[in-house]
Nucleic acid binder design. Structure first.
Lengths: 222, 222, 222, 222
DNA sequence: ACATAATCGAGACGGTACGTCCCGTCTTGTG
DNA sequence: CACAAGACGGGACGTACCGTCTCGATTATGT
């Protein structure tokens, strides 16, 4: 089943779809999720608030879940800072920190609510939101290998998971990230340090990791 | 809101509640969650499958969410496997592997369906299933520190997350674990090796990690 | 397909249907047909006015058409004057006149609107409304034959049609009954006289028909 | 409300209307009324079957009702059969028989579907189909009176109804005509005989009716 | 023994929302 | 302009469940 509105609408005959209408629907959806939550949200209410017929919504998305995923993804997609100009460590921390913070925003919490709705939804969410970020992280790690900063024998896919997994798991279910105050960047730094320590090339060990050492230790004794 | 059926039903006059009925309801609930998911599950269907009147369900639980939490809690009451007697690496791999396999059982699939549904559901799941396992892993790591096997300056909570997170995230959402065939133990081994490499005390590095190195590499080139 | 609510509800298990509810629905239906017509009538509006859920209506009737037929039939069924105590001519005139007037009442106009909706509806209407009246007329004619008042060689079915047909056709489509003021009983009398003149036994001719001769002639020159 | 397409479409500038299009629409309309009835007919379906845009229909007729009236009127434009050259009885039987048979054609079935739909529809049908036939019958009866064959004190309008009513009522709703097989001409003959017996001048009674007496009697005892 | 009282299955009830079908109007691009 | 295609706001359709409420039939306990 189609999961999202076609991004390029295949200009056929007939009146073309009004992009303003789509924007209004997405806007109304986001507002309503924020106000009453996913569970209580109804397509009927979305249509009413957007000043739109129900059929206009169902013409674009198969159902409520897909509409919401698309709406959330719309909000999410933005803020994709391109370049990575810092240290490897800095870039990883920045990317994960952004991911972590995303989990605490409205949009992130929405997604949290949606994952697990159905296999299709998970697939949709992965494709739209997760994979791009994984890919970006993967690219940065690849460069690390090329620069001789990381060991050449790493399974980078696993390394990415080892970075992304704890953060997203913390967002979805809650682990140390919650227990020790996921609001703080120190958690992410500790995570990156741990993984990098096992990932950097032996010759660089001393050089790259001597930073941000104390922050988390101090925090965790609060 | 009350979350579970009263454990001791205030023995008074009148016909007592039939425990077989409760069992049938829970069974039907679990089956239906597994088959069609929480979202599409209806109390009506549960009643029909259990051969029970709707009122009989509402007499015990305030609503669908509470029923489901109770049912899942019933299943996931931990059957804690015995202690750890192997290497640190062996023990970690074993624990994570069990966790990963759990995600493919019915109970595990149930959780997948429930993640993100509601704070109560997550809380229940964490308390019943996750925390015991985290605690066990944490204990094993602590022993590793005491044995001098692991660095003494580690934030063990973060280390636990770094091990549990990727596995559970793979189960719930799918990452490299899915891409490279999460069915294989090699994924878990690669993960443990990566983390341990960053976690073992410098003096033990050479000693502990020279194993299971090739398996994953070979697999991933299939 | 079932066409009407079951008259005797086959007392099974479960909560029995509330007869007050049915009455309210029928009442609301009749009111709304009267106010806005069959075409503009909606089950939704009926439910709202009756203070009833839509499902409660659909539990009893398959759809709008059947509901309306039942409601109209309810109104119609009443006013079935049993005995026939007058002359043959008087009884026939009375019966047809009642039929004609019925066509001008609300209920009658409603039926007019319904006939032609679908073959099923016509069948339903015939069974519920027309056939009983035809049967009554037929019975009266039969008595006329037994009394020696009518010719014994008549096809009474055809005679019934010859009496009912013009009246109902006038109601449905409009003929002389409309053109000459269907509001007046004289049309029916003229019709009965014409038919009887061809139906009475030769020996009774002079005796039975010498009445009500002039009324219609006078009217038609208005 | 305007009822038909403009007959002369105000020849101005721009592309003229395609007459083929109009024909296709009318054809599709008639087919669909015959197949699913007026109630279930939709402009959308008409457009689809005619291979035409909806706007093209609404450009010609204000709505569904008017389209249908126009389509039906198109079909029923009377192909008036020639005069009457036989006996009074023969002519009446022939005229009514033609009417009866008409009810079994597509055009006739269309009318069945339309009766009672709306005042406009009935008016259109009466004007287009019924009145010409009534007028013809009336004329023939008038000649019967002039010839001294029929009683001079008859209300001929009522006599026409008494002949037309049963036949049309049988076609529309079903009476004895259905019960005894309206497919047979004997029904019409019995009807005509009954009415004529009450309508012929006393002096001619013996002379005119001694025919076709037995046919129906035999049929009805099958 | 027998009334009392809570349970059970079944299912009707007033509602809310679903996703679909048309209505009649309006934009497109192509003759 | 007319035309096909089809999007649009709107309204009703008939269905599925919600959580509540009778029903009649059980099944214990407390007299």
């Amino acid at each position: 089943a189609r999961m999202t509105a076609e991004t390029v609408p295949v200009r056929g005959p007939g009146r073309p779809r009004d992009p303003h209408v789509e924007a209004a629907i997405v806007q109304a959806t986001l507002e309503l999720i924020d106000e009453i939550g996913y569970g209580r949200l109804s397509v009927e209410a979305v249509a009413a608030r957007a000043g739109v017929g129900k059929a206009t919504i169902y013409r674009r998305w198969p159902g409520k879940a897909e509409l919401v995923v698309h709406a959330v993804a719309t909000v999410t997609e933005t803020h994709t800072p391109e370049g990575s100009t810092g240290t490897l460590r800095e870039d990883l921390v920045a990317a994960l920190e952004q991911m972590r913070r995303h989990g605490t925003t409205m949009a992130g919490r929405l997604v949290t609510r949606l994952v697990g709705e159905s296999p299709e939804l998970i697939a949709c969410y992965r494709q739209q939101v997760i994979e791009p970020r994984r890919a970006r992280l993967l690219g940065r790690l690849q460069r690390g290998v090329e620069d001789g900063e990381l060991r050449p024998d790493l399974q980078l896919e696993v390394v990415v998971d080892t970075l992304v997994g704890p953060v997203m798991y913390g967002v979805l279910v809650g682990g140390a990230a919650r227990a020790f105050g996921s609001a703080h960047v120190a958690y992410v730094e500790e995570l990156v340090d741990l993984v990098l320590r096992g990932a950097v090339a032996p010759s660089r060990q001393e050089f790259d990791l001597r930073s941000a050492r104390t922050a988390y230790t101090e925090l965790s004794t609060h």
